[in-house]
């Protein structure tokens, strides 16, 4: 009657030797190699994960704060507008009230704006002109994944034509920039909470709205949002003698950014363990073959026990090389 294989299991060979023997010394050496060699093989400058990167789209919420500064061909063509009323009152004759329209576009409806559209209309009386325009737009920027931070940021839109214009169209990306990696501490961290770029509650003079001063503050920060224009078009105007409107239109895309952060201890150990283990497996494989050869052929003297039927420990088998 034919039979079929139902189950299989290996039979082990066990090797024994006294503590004070070359075999035991070889055993210790094997253990040391098994544990340490993978570490040396996998170790390099990147073994311990000091920084890591992940991708995240910053959540930029418009703070309804904007500064617009424009100059024209004539010396008197100097205009200022802010959405902060206290700043406007301190600007005297240079104040020119603008019409500002903004819209945050969330294409994929993930509650994070993907685009930001800005339209500023600067009314001009006859003989007034605009040839250069600067705008600072303030956002509340938030990272929500690993490096959870909240901060106030501002992007700078600037263009100097040299000739009078009726409008500026610009399209570009709002890029998250960082000089140093971000710490990961679990909860949200409010960055630069003591140094607001523009605090409407602390307006004491017109210098509070000075764009250059704010830009210097931004430059001193580690984390910034930067506007990088890709497409720009300046619409010239031939008739600067009559009243008109200068229109600044900006289509700002907010792409996903690479966030560099300092990993936690758990992440560092996990990453190192993976690197170590990958070498450990290789070393262990070859070491197992080596030990098997050495012990089986009695290159170092050991006592070999082979498991057999009816015996839990097997039959001793001695062989001298």
């Amino acid at each position: 009657m034919a039979s079929v294989e139902l189950f299989q299991e290996p039979i082990r060979r066990r090797y024994y030797a006294p503590y004070l023997s070359c075999s035991y010394l070889f055993f210790l050496l094997s253990v040391w190699v098994l544990l340490c060699l993978p570490f040396f093989l996998s170790y390099d400058t990147n073994f311990w994960l000091k920084t890591n990167t992940y991708r995240e789209q910053p959540d930029n919420a418009y703070e309804y704060k904007i500064l617009v500064q424009a100059t024209g061909l004539a010396g008197s063509d100097n205009y200022f507008y802010s959405s902060v009323p206290d700043l406007n009152r301190l600007r005297g004759e240079t104040l020119k009230m603008c019409s500002v329209k903004t819209r945050e576009v969330d294409d994929n409806r993930d509650s994070i704006p993907d685009k930001f559209r800005l339209e500023v209309e600067l009314p001009l009386a006859s003989a007034e002109s605009v040839s250069k325009v600067d705008a600072l737009v303030f956002f509340r920027t938030q990272l929500q994944n690993k490096a959870k931070i909240v901060m106030e940021s501002a992007i700078h839109i600037s263009y100097d034509s040299g000739s009078a214009g009726a409008g500026l169209y610009t399209s570009g990306n709002m890029i998250f920039s960082q000089t140093h990696p971000l710490p990961v501490k679990g909860g949200y961290v409010t960055m630069y909470s003591n140094t607001d770029l523009l605090d409407p509650s602390k307006i004491s003079g017109s210098s509070d709205g000075d764009i250059r001063t704010i830009l210097e503050q931004i430059s001193a920060r580690n984390l910034t949002m930067t506007y990088k224009p890709e497409l720009t078009h300046w619409t010239p105007v031939v008739d600067s003698a009559s009243a008109s409107t200068f229109t600044l239109t900006a289509d700002i895309k907010i792409p996903t950014a690479d966030i560099v952060y300092i990993p936690t201890a758990v992440e560092v150990l996990r990453d190192a363990w993976i690197k170590y283990l990958s070498m450990f497996v290789v070393v262990g494989f070859f070491l197992e073959k080596l030990c098997s050869f050495v012990y089986f052929h009695q290159i170092v003297e050991t006592k070999m026990l082979v498991e057999t039927v009816g015996s839990n420990v097997g039959v001793p088998h001695f062989k001298r090389f």
Binding site: Y64, C98, S99, V100, K101, T102, R103
Partner: peptide, 15 residues
């Protein structure tokens, strides 16, 4: 004279 568009945050002013 400034028409409000849906979803457009606006600020208009005069002096």
């Amino acid at each position: 004279g400034t028409t409000v568009g849906f979803g457009e945050d606006s600020s208009v002013g005069c002096t």
